[in-house]
Amino acid sequence: MSRNRLGRPPAYLLLPAGLAVALLLVPLASLVARAPFGSLLERLAAPEVLDALWLSLWTATAAMLASLVLGLPLAWLLARVEFPGRSLVRTLVTVPLVLPPVVAGVALLTAFGRTGVVGAPLRELGVTIPFTSTAVVIAHTFVALPFFVISVEGALRATSQDYDEVAAVLGARRGAIFRRVTVPLAAPGIAAGLVLGWARSLGEFGATITFAGNYPGVTQTMPLAVYTLLQEDLEAAVALSLVMLLVSVVVLALLRERWFGQAAR
């Protein structure tokens, strides 16, 4: 046993550490304990639950794809190309990370609302975004994109730029280097960023309810459904929460190799 070679860990460190674990685990355990296992399948098969589940899955996936298409080029620019204002762009991109989600929702409303900079011209064309499923996807992308960009930029920076130079010397143009060298080498980091962004979308609440509303079947995602059900049917809310807990555990398992595997190595 090598861990105690420097002496016993003192109680004033062990105690708070134990409390921290308890604080994190007790609520989860009681959630599982309160779950109505007998009627679980029946409750989850209820139409409004299935609607919320399906909406959550496809909007989170759409937001993930939007993050990939928009975020990967941005992450690459931030990691590989020197341009004036680069650190300013990086700072601005990270703002939504610390923004309260409800503020994000209000901001999106002012931009895409009927009189917003984007919303007004769109309305001329007969397109309304707020309180539609599209709004859900936009809200999700807004909160997930910064996660994706920051995590992929880190992955790109961690990949040696030497290989880019080797590829250039061998005659590959910038775009070919990106496709054939940079992206394949950073693929694990990009995948982790996608999973992280997807999980972030799935749990999104504040921006969605503010910008897209809470319409069953249209904008009522899983977290919104849990919140709504909580008012009338605690057991149903617990059942739904259990599903989301399960999803989180699966995400954690997917990322485990990447995060904890490296730390343990």
């Binding site: 030497d162 080797v166 010397v169 005659g171 590959a172």
Partner: peptide, 15 residues
């Protein structure tokens, strides 16, 4: 890319 050179490094730097 435009110069037409070959380079070999101390660490092979194979992809």
């Amino acid at each position: 890319q435009e110069r037409g050179i070959g380079m070999v490094f101390q660490q092979h730097l194979l992809f």
